[in-house]
Simulated scan of single mutants.
Amino acid sequence: MKIRKAVFPVAGLGTRVLPATKAMPKEMLTIVDKPLIQYVVDEAREAGIEHFVFVTGRNKGVIEDHFDRMFELDATLEARGKKAEQDILARDQPDAGAMSFTRQQAPLGLGHAVWCARDVVGDEPFAVLLPDELVLNTPGCLAQMIEAAAKLPDKSNLIAVQEVPADQTHQYGICGIGKRLAQRGVFEVASMVEKPPKGTAPSNLSITGRYILQPEIFRILQTQERGAGGEIQLTDAMIGLSKSQTFYGVEFEGERHDCGSKAGFLRANIAYGMARADLRDGLREEMRKYLEQ
């Protein structure tokens, strides 16, 4: 099951981190020295993704600009002999024609955003990565999922899952645990429910922001009714698809960071800063000063 394309829903308004996102897309907020979206694209590229599909909205043009060449900047760096900076930009530059951008013209939810990518994805399995969720690990979360998918039957769907406290399951999409496979951390998904009422969740495994889906999901999303929050929920469509295709949960290795919240965004900056050998000692010293106050 070759996964060549990945969808990045980037049309959200980022209301949880206002006012920072009033004029700037949340996907362009920086973790250390790179925008969120770059980390997620890098994760997809590491996993072997060849085509990157962005579902955008108004005021998101800067995302497209970020992945374009800036000839003025290149010329300035060249003239000033800044080879290291040039190498960084070249490393992050996608191949020509490897990115597509389409619009979600109304805020109708994640399921609708994925549906908007249908014509670009076509009739093949694809990945979905939510750009405000980062996973700090090597190999990345999607690479782990694609490795698991290679050992599963065709027409399999995969979702990345992670434990959450039992008293918080009503805040997430939750999956029930079916048969566990020989592969470490992989199991058949017995059920899925979006934000179950307190005390009714089938497990404490939450559905996180990484998916591998079969193209049949688009036919379901075409007529999917609105669910929680008045939006077209991807989880609801996956429940429909699970009636004819198998879903597998992948308990990935890595440290997940919800950068869509202010506290999560701050934690991610600390975690990714501490993961950098060139920044770790100085950051530790600065944090010690504040902790001692």
Rank of each mutant, 00 (worst) to 15 (best):
M1T: 06
K2W: 12
K5I: 01
A6E: 04
A6I: 00
V7F: 03
V7Q: 02
P9N: 05
A11F: 13
G12R: 11
G12D: 15
L13A: 15
R16C: 09
R16L: 15
L18Y: 13
A20M: 15
K26L: 15
K26Y: 15
M28W: 11
I31M: 13
D33R: 10
L36N: 00
I37W: 00
I37C: 14
Y39C: 05
R45N: 02
R45C: 00
G48K: 01
G48A: 04
V53N: 01
F54E: 01
F54K: 02
K60D: 13
I63R: 02
H66W: 15
H66G: 04
F67L: 10
D68E: 14
D68G: 07
E72V: 11
D74E: 15
A75S: 15
E78H: 12
R80I: 10
R80N: 14
E85C: 05
E85W: 14
Q86A: 11
Q93E: 11
Q93C: 08
P94K: 09
P94T: 03
M99Q: 10
S100P: 08
T102I: 15
T102Y: 11
R103I: 09
Q104F: 06
A106F: 13
A117P: 01
A117N: 06
R118T: 05
D119A: 10
D119Y: 10
V120C: 09
V121I: 15
G122C: 14
F126I: 00
L130P: 01
P131Y: 06
T138R: 14
P139C: 08
G140L: 06
C141H: 06
C141V: 07
L142V: 01
Q144C: 05
Q144I: 00
P153K: 09
I159D: 01
V161Q: 02
Q168K: 09
Q168P: 01
Y172I: 03
G173T: 10
I174V: 12
C175L: 11
I177C: 07
I177S: 03
G178C: 11
R180V: 05
R184Q: 12
G185Y: 09
F187N: 00
F187C: 03
A190P: 00
A190D: 03
M192R: 00
K195H: 08
P196D: 07
P196G: 07
P197C: 12
A201H: 02
S203K: 06
Q214M: 12
R219M: 08
R219S: 09
I220H: 09
Q222S: 12
E231G: 03
E231F: 11
I232N: 06
I232H: 06
I239W: 11
I239S: 08
G240Y: 08
L241D: 00
L241R: 03
S242W: 11
K243L: 13
K243T: 07
Q245L: 15
T246G: 03
G249N: 07
G249T: 02
F252A: 05
G260C: 10
S261R: 12
G264F: 08
L266D: 08
A271W: 04
A271K: 08
G273R: 05
R276W: 09
R280I: 03
R280C: 09
G282I: 03
M287W: 11
M287G: 02
